[in-house]
């Protein structure tokens, strides 16, 4: 390996797990997440001299990861969609209720369109602002807000999350 790859190795060792977590949240499949992360890091390696010279290489790599995920066109569809009926939160106690709600939310998130899911992951897991999300997705902040609004509306009206509120 060439000398510059030393810093690349350090980067992968330091940031690889976080990238895998992000990929996993985006595609909701462990194997797909690994493939996605590896594909992106292989591309990063080829451009590492340039990327490592950027002020925030991690932000750039995450952007590559999200956009690679969005462009995958279901070449290997995980086939996992939330089809199982969720337990009713009304039947659970407080602690269990939280667990069940989260479980339901995970399934519902997996069923959202890719772009809406990406917006929610970037907003609620990566804690990015709408402006930062817009830069990652190469769209306007208004589009980000619109996508987030639709995604949240879908979740809000889903039975697994709302039965208790009815």
């Amino acid at each position: 390996m060439r000398p510059m790859e030393g810093s690349f190795e350090e980067y992968v060792q330091a940031r690889g797990p976080a990238l895998l977590r992000l990929a996993f949240l985006l595609c909701s499949d462990r194997h797909l997440a690994e493939d996605l992360t590896q594909d992106v890091l292989i591309r990063v390696y080829r451009q590492w001299r340039r990327i490592s010279g950027l002020g925030h290489p991690d932000a750039y790599v995450k952007r590559m990861l999200v956009n690679e995920h969005l462009s995958w066109r279901r070449r290997r569809s995980n086939g996992e969609l939330p089809t199982a009926e969720m337990s009713s939160p009304a039947e659970q106690g407080d602690a269990a209720d939280t667990v069940v709600r989260r479980h339901a939310a995970v399934h519902l998130l997996a069923g959202l369109p890719k772009r809406q899911r990406a917006v929610l992951v970037l907003r609620f897991y990566e804690d990015l602002t709408d402006q930062q999300i817009a830069e990652v997705l190469r769209c306007s902040p208004a589009t980000v807000r619109s996508q987030a609004s639709r995604a949240l509306a879908t979740l809000r009206t889903s039975r697994g999350l709302t039965r208790q509120d009815v």
């Binding site: 797990p17 895998l20 977590r21 996993f24 949240l25 462990r30 997440a33 995970v106 992951v121 897991y125």
Partner: peptide
């Protein structure tokens, strides 16, 4: 959503 994502992240590879 935030709590769900963080809980799900624990299952990541």
């Amino acid at each position: 959503v935030s709590g769900s994502l963080r809980a799900q992240a624990a299952d990541a590879p």
